[in-house]
Design a protein around this nucleic acid. Structure first.
Lengths: 228, 228
DNA sequence: TTACCGAGTTGATTGAAATCAACCCCCGGA
DNA sequence: TCCGGGGGTTGATTTCAATCAACTCGGTAA
């Protein structure tokens, strides 16, 4: 993992487009930027490990990061996949302590890396804008995470996959087509499935007019998926 | 659901002991209290319905509230069980919109009921303490919710039940004993299980020295549970 | 006392997804 | 050209928990 302070235009743009900074004024954004460095990750790079003392939180500028927990026998379960604009470990800005999960780059990724202590201090000194931005980000993550629980508990594998495809094809009419933004094995983890189960779900969906060629997905009839 | 503005000593004490208000100074707490009314609920009372426009969020002062989502066929999945000190729907203070799940009293319960708009305005006017308190509360909920996903995906029914019992017996040596704080059917939902599955998990744990009499639990050997 | 009701348990069966294992396909390097 | 490996698929089997149905138990109202 290669760190740098250099702040070029591309980085600045991506930084501004982050969910955390989306509704921030310039002054607040500058305060936050002063707590940040940047990191480039290569696929499978470890960002931090479950149990490490929590020193930084992150925003994804490009690429994908996988958050997962490991049990005592080494089995892994994905908790979240973070893409461009997402932040993670920001739930530790207040509580602190240690990371409760592993974070691993799932692709070539660029990250903004914030010093937790400095951000916490900045938040105390600030007029509230920074704290509101953090609260807003956490609220969004909480909603997504609760959705995930409900989805896991309420829907079968095929239904979860169909729902994911519908979300990805958001705004397109039938027929729709798009490219998966990451590997199928990662998607399986995100949906709480073994890779084989994802593969079988795609096989089932083929009968409903979903065609998969590598990462390219074609959906003949969106309503057929919605009906699941 | 019976609402009142009357603020007696007991209510005030419970209000102060809420996770949301735990680290607040008096001035901030008063600001927040001005946005609050109180509600008494009887078992099965509906606090709000999935899809309703979001006007209030809540803190549980006493009793329990069940948050759950319903799919189109009417099947239900519990997302969270909130007990004394917990708050819910506070993820809507910023985003707003509509409630994404049902909230139902699972017991006789007393709730503090906050006007979302007024709290949001108070948060903007404030020096940041209020926003930090909200962010802290959301961070805690996010951690719990991520724990729940990892737990669901990583552990079997018996393991989840054992883990819950260990958490409840926190701090006790072997043998430990305590009373479940709510009905078994609600516990089953919280753990993502059908009531029958919880019952069977208890039957399995009996062999490891867990004795269940109604809501009373006795654990002969805590380490035997930890070893699962 | 009896009848009943809700909560929980137990048994039988089904169903969904994990696991284990073999295989395929594509690509890149020697 | 061949070899090797990563990612993905397919098949066979097992495991876990949901579902459906019957039954128990304890409390309460008639």
């Amino acid at each position: 993992m290669n760190r740098t302070l250099l702040l070029n235009e591309r980085k600045k743009t991506l930084f501004v487009e982050t969910k955390l900074t989306a509704n921030m004024d310039m002054a607040t954004m500058n305060k936050l930027m002063e707590c940040a460095t940047f990191a480039n990750c290569y696929p499978r790079d470890v960002v931090f490990r479950q149990g490490d003392p929590a020193t930084h939180f992150y925003s994804v500028l490009s690429g994908y990061v996988r958050l997962f927990r490991q049990n005592s026998e080494g089995r892994e379960a994905d908790i979240r996949v973070c893409g461009p604009g997402d932040s993670f470990a920001d739930d530790l800005i207040f509580g602190g302590g240690t990371y409760e999960y592993h974070a691993q780059a799932a692709d070539k990724a660029m990250l903004a890396r914030y010093d937790i202590n400095r951000v916490r201090n900045a938040t105390s000194a600030d007029d509230g804008m920074l704290a509101r931005a953090i609260a807003g980000s956490l609220a969004g993550q909480l909603q997504e995470t609760m959705d995930c629980i409900a989805n896991d508990r309420l829907n079968t594998a095929v239904q979860r996959v169909a729902l994911y495809l519908l979300e990805q094809a958001e705004g397109q009419g039938s027929p729709a087509s798009f490219r998966l933004s990451f590997q199928k094995s990662l998607l399986a983890g995100k949906l709480g499935l073994a890779p084989e189960a994802l593969s079988r779900a795609f096989a089932t969906l083929k009968q409903l007019g979903v065609h998969v060629h590598g990462r390219i997905i074609e959906i003949e009839d969106m309503d057929a998926l919605r009906a699941l």
